[in-house]
Amino acid sequence: MNPIARSPFGPAAEQRCNIKAHAELVLLDENVKNLSKALVEECRKETAKYQHLAEIERDARREAEIRARSYAKVIDQHDDLKAKLESMIPDLVQEVQYLPKEPEVAELEAQLRAAEKERDGLTELLRAAEEERDAALRARDTAIARLRPRQADGIVVGDAEALQLRLDAPTLCGVLEQAKRYCTLLVITADPDEAERLEHHQKASLWRDRLADALAMIQAYAEDKNLTRARGRGAGPDFANLRAYCGSRPSPLLSPVKVILNEGKFASSSPRGKADRRLPVPEGIDPSGYAAMLEHIRIGDGAPPAPRLHYLDDTDQSGLIVVGFFGEHLHNASTN
């Protein structure tokens, strides 16, 4: 028996060596246990994975078996199905022969275009008939309103010269008041204060005559246009506007060159020009109660105050003409 090895450093050193060796053994045992646990856990995970794959494979096999049985059943019935289809074919062929033939797309498109053209034509006829009806109603109403004050004075419809005599008055405002009585197709919304500013001018008497001439011609134009449309003849080029009407008369009270149908860019686009020419009208003509009046008549010559009469020709709609301004020349590019 070999003697027990002793440490050359004495019992104390030998005891420390034993303690260190024991600690290393305990640590080694702990590492072995941990490693064993990790291996066991990994094995469990792998086992669970392969079990899951096995279940998927089993389900897929079960579904494949079900499909195989259904296919086998169809295959077993193949002969019966084939015979049944073959027996149905003659009946189907016969039914197809008696089906109505589908019309060609081009033929349908042609029919559609013809129908749309006919619809548009009927719409246009309806519009024209409605315009003639409205013109006839306006002519009837205006004739009734006109006959009461004018029959006693012997004024004939459309007789501008006779009407002009009835518009004679000692003042410009008086001429406008007479027009309100006798010119039943004129709506006069002009501010009388504008006319009154011209009363004491040395040319006031000349302007009164020209104003009466202009108002009489405007009334004659509206009357003749309404009556022409009411008779179903339609308003030709002579009734395109007041200037054309004056140009078509043999001896008009108002020269066509005095009728201006539009104004320059300042009047139609600048804020000041547009504001000055936005004048009052009945709400039946414009719901806002105002409308732009660029058409006007030169009552005075070019020298200031150069009176002008601005109006709105609404004869194509209401059959009326609105006189929205009579007074000094409104601001334009040369007076601004």
Rank of each mutant, 00 (worst) to 15 (best):
D276C: 13
Q151N: 11
N31L: 15
K101W: 04
E102I: 15
L165R: 12
A240R: 07
V74C: 07
E118F: 12
A303I: 10
L35N: 14
L206F: 05
D29M: 11
A291N: 12
E130F: 05
R44F: 09
F326C: 03
H296R: 01
K82A: 15
R119S: 11
I155T: 09
A275C: 01
Q94K: 02
L185M: 13
A106I: 11
V175D: 00
C173N: 06
E65K: 11
V32E: 15
R308I: 06
S251K: 10
Y182T: 00
E283N: 10
P100G: 00
V187Q: 01
A162Y: 02
D191P: 03
E177C: 03
L125C: 12
D213V: 02
V26M: 12
P90R: 04
K203P: 01
V175C: 07
R233Y: 11
R166P: 04
P90M: 04
K49C: 15
N2Q: 12
G174H: 02
T315S: 03
N34L: 15
A303N: 13
G300Y: 00
A216M: 04
A129W: 03
S36G: 15
N2A: 14
E328A: 13
V96K: 07
L198T: 03
R61S: 14
R146F: 15
L320D: 02
Q317D: 15
E194Y: 11
D193K: 14
Q178C: 02
E102H: 10
V93T: 12
L35Y: 06
Q317Y: 11
N241L: 06
G289P: 01
S269D: 12
R16F: 07
A54I: 12
E55I: 12
A306T: 08
H78D: 11
E283V: 11
L215C: 05
I56T: 10
Q178P: 02
D224G: 05
G319Q: 00
Q51G: 08
H22V: 13
I260K: 13
D286K: 00
L167Y: 07
A244E: 01
C246F: 07
Y311R: 00
L126E: 15
D79G: 15
D209F: 05
H78A: 14
D59E: 14
N2Y: 08
C183V: 06
S269Y: 09
V32A: 13
A64V: 13
E14M: 06
K82P: 07
A64H: 09
A72W: 03
Q151W: 08
R44C: 10
A195K: 07
N336C: 12
R181M: 08
M1A: 13
D316Y: 02
L163S: 04
A235M: 07
G154P: 00
D224M: 06
D238F: 01
I75Y: 03
I19C: 06
G10C: 07
Q317C: 10
K73D: 03
G319N: 05
R62V: 08
M1V: 10
N18Y: 11
I299G: 01
A230L: 03
L85F: 14
D313G: 00
Y182G: 05
S36N: 14
G236P: 05
P252I: 05
V74L: 15
S288H: 05
I144S: 08
K258P: 01
L242Q: 02
V40R: 13
